[in-house]
Simulated assay, not measured.
Amino acid sequence: MKVVGFAGFSGSGKTTLVETLVALFVQRGLRVSVLKHAHHRFEIDHPGKDTWRHRQAGAYEVLAASDSLIALQRRLPQPVELDVPDLLPMLDPSVDWVFVEGFKTARLPKIEIWRASTGRPVCYPQDPLIRAIATDSPGQLPPPAPTHVLDINTPPAVADWLMDNAIAFEYQP
């Protein structure tokens, strides 16, 4: 499986780019999983639903399954910040690509998403694992710019670049 991180500050367009890339890769016949970092507590369940009630009763895990979807909820015994190597084994290893959104400091090859309009700094000077930058502001990148500057507004070109460089994203646990 190939694993690529998409790193950048909030508001830079990570989710929009990842969403579009997933659709483009699926159109090419590839299977893609997404691993998303959630900065805040989040809830996928709703009060009163059976699965919520099972969790409230103290279940360690609740696996909800239908004929087209499964969702596993696992209670962590205490708050812990899991990292990409902890989470990747939970995904189906037969997928072609895993897009990792967030996890800025993860030790994996990444594409940085950056827009000058956010007013936030670039990450690439401090992160040698950034292989390319996707931006709408290439002329405003501080030197030295990464070797590969991609147009964030042209997702098919980003997809092509990923496919052309797929070997660099082969996951090595």
Rank of each mutant, 00 (worst) to 15 (best):
T15W: 01
T15Q: 01
T15G: 03
T16E: 05
T16Q: 10
T16S: 13
T16L: 06
T16C: 02
T16K: 01
T16P: 00
L17M: 03
L17R: 06
L17P: 00
L17D: 01
L17V: 11
V18L: 05
V18E: 04
E19K: 14
E19L: 03
E19S: 01
E19I: 05
E19T: 13
T20W: 01
T20E: 13
T20N: 08
T20Q: 09
L21D: 12
L21I: 07
L21R: 00
L21H: 05
L21K: 04
L21T: 10
L21P: 10
L21E: 08
L21W: 01
V22T: 09
V22G: 03
V22I: 12
V22M: 02
A23K: 08
A23R: 06
A23E: 11
A23L: 00
A23S: 10
L24P: 03
L24Q: 10
L24T: 13
F25K: 06
F25H: 07
F25I: 11
F25G: 08
F25W: 10
F25C: 06
V26P: 02
V26H: 09
V26F: 09
V26Y: 09
V26L: 10
Q27A: 06
Q27M: 07
Q27N: 05
R28L: 09
R28Y: 06
R28D: 04
R28N: 07
R28S: 11
R28M: 05
R28K: 14
G29D: 15
G29L: 08
G29N: 12
L30N: 14
L30M: 14
L30G: 07
R31M: 09
R31G: 06
R31K: 13
R31L: 07
V32I: 11
V32S: 11
V32Q: 09
S33N: 11
S33I: 12
S33L: 09
S33M: 07
S33G: 13
S33F: 08
V34R: 08
V34T: 14
V34N: 07
V34P: 06
V34D: 05
V34H: 05
V34Q: 06
L35K: 12
L35N: 13
L35D: 14
L35I: 14
L35Q: 11
K36N: 13
K36F: 04
H37F: 13
H37A: 13
H37S: 13
H37T: 04
H37G: 08
H37R: 09
A38E: 01
A38S: 15
A38Y: 12
A38L: 13
A38D: 01
A38R: 15
H39Q: 00
H39P: 00
H39D: 00
H39V: 00
H39K: 03
H39A: 01
H39W: 04
H39Y: 02
H39T: 00
H40E: 12
H40W: 03
H40L: 07
H40N: 10
H40Q: 13
R41P: 08
F42I: 14
F42E: 00
F42S: 02
F42K: 07
F42H: 07
F42C: 00
E43A: 13
E43N: 14
E43K: 04
E43L: 08
I44T: 10
I44Y: 07
I44P: 07
D45E: 15
D45P: 15
D45C: 12
D45L: 02
D45G: 12
H46L: 10
H46V: 13
H46Y: 13
H46A: 11
H46N: 01
H46W: 12
H46C: 04
